[in-house]
Design a protein around this nucleic acid. Structure first.
Lengths: 338, 338
DNA sequence: TTGTAGGCGTTATCAG
DNA sequence: CTGATAACGCCTACAA
């Protein structure tokens, strides 16, 4: 016997309260088909005994486990912390638990066997996996609820407008007098990164500024790729007076590259990030960044999976928001050199 | 019917291969009591059909779920990333999945209901929760395997020697000529933090240096508390020439405080951290830090829970290791001011 | 080496 | 409103 007999089950409760298992089950599941009297009697006994329904048995009977999985490919670690804590907040006080599921290699096959094995109630997909239609199809097939973060179109999507947000960010730099603005782009396979790049191009075009390829360096969302891209952009002549990176990790890399080569930020060059991850506040100079409400989106995603999607009015605004810190100076206050 | 009948079960495999369920079960569980012939035939069919055993049914029958939980109280977010990825590496290719379980409030009650509900195979406890004997007892009671990270004594512990590591770190600063060395300590309720503080005191005493309370500021393992403690230490007169923080988050806070007040790191003051989290490499100047192999420990913890603890020889060394970056200068190369 | 019967704790069906 | 009875998919005893 694996399970200590001390562990109490629905049968014990049934016996103690003199009703059938099924009635206990109804009480547990808030079924309206129970008399007030019976319900309160049973509830008292449950409280008294500290009975907790066994999630495995339940999962087996229902064909669904009380798990919600966070599925990502590890390509953008910066936003993970916010997403995790948002999801956890959304599950607080519920029966649900959070499972971490990185998938590398063939995402469809990996995810399929994960779902077959654990039958989670739902999964939250992060970019760029959230951009795959295949994965959504897989969830439909397996009756797994699915929310795609950072991907607006489609019924399963939840995102804010990256393109507009980036364009506003760049427009803000332009208002500060900057005209030569470099971009560190994200992986070209990521639609989210593409949207951000388009936002940059929008703003530059709106103000008739040079948006030639020389001012754009390709990154991979990682700190290291940001450093590398930063080095490239710093050698462009004439040098950009501001650089915007498609996420905070890369922005931190740009700052590192700049300071190492003796260009102080923001005195010699301004740098801005995107996402507003915890890293932004911890580096020096503290990074000005466009806040993307990943935590709020993740929390809302969990609500949807739990079937408690808020009314449109109550839903959190899910809007991007500029957070000004210390990594940007108006052009007129910048010096040309160290 | 919740489960699409298309989903294949052990019964389908049994029928297809012309043997009984039990034999399939034996194959799945690597039982030696199966003939080579039968085994390979069954395995072929399993591969062909893509059959994945249902974890819920299995969990119900065995009384254990194929989950391993990471349990922490959120007080030291810096090491979470390393621990998560180490645990995931340890579970790669296995049937196990990682559940994230932050507990706030009454840890014993919270953990108990979590265990009752999900019956995880094991849990990994992070400091300071790993220091609680109560939680270990709870695991014993519920037959849940448990590994306590950062806590040496006892059969369930897995840690490296924080005290010695810190003392070596401080001794290294002393060899660089520093004599006035400040400390940002961790929460006094955390034994791990206490060990680190003791290591600092050891080294200072060994070299007959001032280790009075004026040079020690209390932190709470958070970035903000590090900034606050940093501000305090910078006002001590004469000012310390180096500050060591009990974790990287706080060290980043100290750097922020120093640079904001115009004291450049490391030119005016040296700063070192502890843990060597990803943050250390991302800030500027890059943080010199004592590497604590959290990822390796977490991976080993998972191995233990899976019952595959390596022989002592094969086990990863689990030793702390100094990682030198750019936040420290020998005293003679430091200038007294900006 | 393999198979049969029964149980794990819960939910669904359908009759009272 | 309530309760027998039969799943859910797998595993352990015990036989064969």
């Amino acid at each position: 016997m694996h399970i200590p007999s001390s562990r109490i089950t629905i049968n014990d409760i049934a016996r103690l309260s003199g009703v059938s298992k099924k009635t206990i089950s109804r009480v547990i599941n808030q079924s309206p088909l129970v008399s007030e009297e019976t319900r309160s009697k049973v509830e008292a006994i449950i409280a008294e005994t500290g009975f907790v329904p066994n999630a495995q048995a339940r999962a087996l009977a229902r064909g669904r486990n009380s798990l919600i999985a966070l599925v990502h490919d590890g390509s953008d670690r910066g936003i993970l912390e916010a997403v995790e804590s948002g999801m956890l907040r959304g599950m607080e006080g519920s029966e649900f638990s959070l499972v971490l599921r990185p998938v590398e290699g063939d995402p469809v096959a990996r995810l399929r066997s994960f779902i077959d094995q654990h039958r989670p109630t739902g999964i939250v997909l992060l970019p760029p996996l959230s951009e795959s239609e295949e994965l959504t199809l897989l969830c439909d097939e397996t009756e797994t609820r699915c929310v795609r973060l950072g991907r607006v179109r489609g019924e399963h999507g939840l995102a804010c407008d990256d393109r507009t947000a980036m364009s506003e960010l760049v427009a803000w730099l332009i208002r500060l007098g900057h005209t030569r603005i470099g971009l560190v782009s994200g992986p070209e396979t990521s639609l989210t990164a593409q949207q951000r790049e388009l936002g940059y191009l929008d703003a530059m075009a709106d103000h008739d500024l040079d948006r030639g390829p020389a001012l754009i360096a390709a990154g991979e969302n990682s700190f290291e790729s940001g450093m590398e891209a930063g080095r490239l952009l710093l050698e462009v002549s004439p040098r950009p007076t501001a650089i915007v990176a498609c996420n905070d990790e890369m922005a931190a890399g740009v700052i590192q590259a700049a300071q190492r080569s003796g260009l102080m930020v923001p005195d010699a060059i301004s740098v801005v990030g995107f996402d507003d991850t915890p890293l932004a506040a911890r580096i020096w100079p503290a990074l000005t960044s466009m806040h993307i409400p990943w935590a709020a989106m993740a929390q809302e995603a969990v609500s949807r999976i739990r079937g408690q999607a808020m009314a449109a009015d109550d839903a959190p605004a899910l809007k991007a928001d500029l957070v000004i810190r210390n990594s940007v100076l108006p052009l007129e206050n910048q010096s040309g050199a160290t």
